[in-house]
Simulated scan of single mutants.
Amino acid sequence: MSLKKSRTILLAFTFLNLLSAHAQQTARFIENPAYKPALGGLIGTTGIGLAFYHPLGVQFGLEVGAGLMPYNMQVVGTYGDYPTRSVARARLHNAHLLFGWVPFHGAENGFRHLTINLGMGYLFKAKGTITTQLRDPQSYGDIELQPEEIGTMYTTINWKESVTPYAGLGFSDMRIDEHFGFNIALGGYFLSQPSVTVKGTAMLEDNEINQPIIERNIQNYRYLPNLQLGIAYSFYAY
């Protein structure tokens, strides 16, 4: 057999193997009801973000993503007997790696998309600041002081940068058409214990003594719930 003919046969054999491997891989994608090679957007209680999905066989899958949560809100309350106005600002930015198990992959109904998710998130920023002033001017004899003259309280709650465990349930890759699918997930992160810093200005400077009290009151606030919706684009048509 000539060398040229041998090379032709070898190339044909290699090409057939590649086609076979691609067909087997594509079949695995189709058989997994909850994971396809896809890229999508996320929105939920922990902010907005992006995620990449990939199957690991018929019953397992992988999600890798990141999210940002810029949160601002005005809060009306009281400090003792005094009405207050506060502005709450939170920044919660994370990257996550989740492994999913599809326990009912052979079901003929929607439960074939049910996934159990376990994994971790890396919080590269988890911090909230509450800026508080009295809502109304205060009179001291003949002198009336405006809220900004009385002072401002700054309360900062900070969770240190850390890897946090995650657990949750979801319904993944609910098909919209041959390329798009949506998912919904409910779970939560278990955070580290937060630290608190309190700082006052003007007549409120001495309120730093409340820092240990606030820190003690929130020391058990370590569970961050996550309700999340997403739409993903599959790289293969199904």
Results as ranks from 00 to 15, higher is better:
Phe13Ser: 08
Phe104Leu: 11
Asn226Gly: 07
Gln228Ser: 05
Phe15His: 15
Ala107Phe: 10
Asn210Cys: 04
Ala27Tyr: 05
Tyr154Phe: 14
Leu191Gln: 08
Lys127Cys: 00
Thr164Ala: 05
Phe180Ala: 01
Thr197Tyr: 09
Gly119Pro: 03
Gly128Thr: 00
Gly61Lys: 12
Tyr71Cys: 05
Leu118Thr: 04
Leu16Arg: 15
Val64Ile: 12
Pro33Gly: 01
Tyr223Pro: 08
His113Phe: 09
Gly57Thr: 07
Lys125Leu: 07
His96Asp: 02
Ala38Leu: 08
Glu161Phe: 11
His54Ser: 09
Thr78Trp: 13
Gly67Leu: 09
Phe111Ala: 15
Gly106Cys: 06
Pro55Val: 10
Arg216Ser: 15
His22Asp: 03
Leu50Val: 14
Asn109Gly: 03
Gly121Phe: 01
Ala237Asp: 02
Phe182Asn: 00
Leu68Phe: 02
Pro194Tyr: 03
His96Pro: 00
Lys5Gly: 02
Met69Glu: 04
Lys199Ser: 13
His96Val: 00
Thr46Ala: 12
Pro194Asp: 03
Asp136Gly: 10
Gly49Asn: 08
Ala21Trp: 14
Ala27Ile: 06
Ser172Thr: 01
Leu97Ser: 03
Gln24Ser: 04
Pro103Tyr: 14
Arg135Gln: 09
Phe190Trp: 06
Thr115Glu: 12
Leu98Met: 11
Leu19Asn: 12
Pro212Val: 11
Gly57Val: 04
Leu227His: 14
Leu227Gly: 14
Asp206Pro: 08
Phe15Ile: 14
Pro137Met: 12
